[in-house]
């Protein structure tokens, strides 16, 4: 530090000490009691906030562990409880089922079978006919079975 700085600082200190009382008198004053009371209330509130912050900082590791464990637990539970979903039914097949059910309710059991059987027979006959056209069916065997 230069010597001039020291002189300057000493001189300015002297001025400040000389003028200090007059300037202090100009700005003398205290904050109102209400302001001081509000600050006291803020200090108490600050302590509460700090206490909560410290508490949460202390239990944070446990909270993190608990959160991780609960996530794993929920995921496991969901995995175990997920039911096997059945294959979806084609809308036309479902409609067939509904129609057949309606017919069964509307007719006697024998009639129901009589109605259902021809459907199966027609399909069987159609299949045999297609196989026959392609030469896969032994006509003799067919006839002998029918006999």
């Amino acid at each position: 530090m230069k010597e001039t700085d020291l002189i300057d600082e000493a001189m300015l200190n002297t001025v400040a000490e000389t003028w200090g009382p007059a300037v202090k008198a100009v700005y003398a004053g205290d904050p109102s009691p209400e302001t001081l009371a509000r600050i006291r209330a803020l200090a108490a509130q600050g302590l509460d906030t700090r206490g909560r912050r410290v508490f949460f900082a202390r239990i944070r590791p446990f909270l993190v562990s608990a959160a991780a464990a609960s996530i794993v637990g929920v995921a496991t539970l969901l995995t175990l409880r997920t039911p096997d979903r059945p294959q979806s039914v084609h809308p036309l097949a479902a409609l067939d089922g509904v129609l057949m059910l309606a017919m069964a309710m509307d007719t006697a059991l024998d009639e129901d079978l009589a109605v259902m059987h021809p459907i199966g027979t027609d399909t069987e006959a159609l299949t045999r006919r297609m196989l026959n056209m392609q030469g896969f069916v032994d006509v003799d065997v067919e006839n002998s079975e029918e006999i």
Binding site: K24, Y27, A28, G29, D30, P31, L36, R40, A43
Partner: peptide, 21 residues
């Protein structure tokens, strides 16, 4: 809280004068 109050009172006059100025 009393300790904080004491801290406030220790500096209240000088600080308030500065702020007021």
């Amino acid at each position: 809280v009393d300790a904080f109050n004491e801290l406030v009172l220790r500096h209240s006059r000088a600080l308030f004068s500065y702020i007021r100025g």
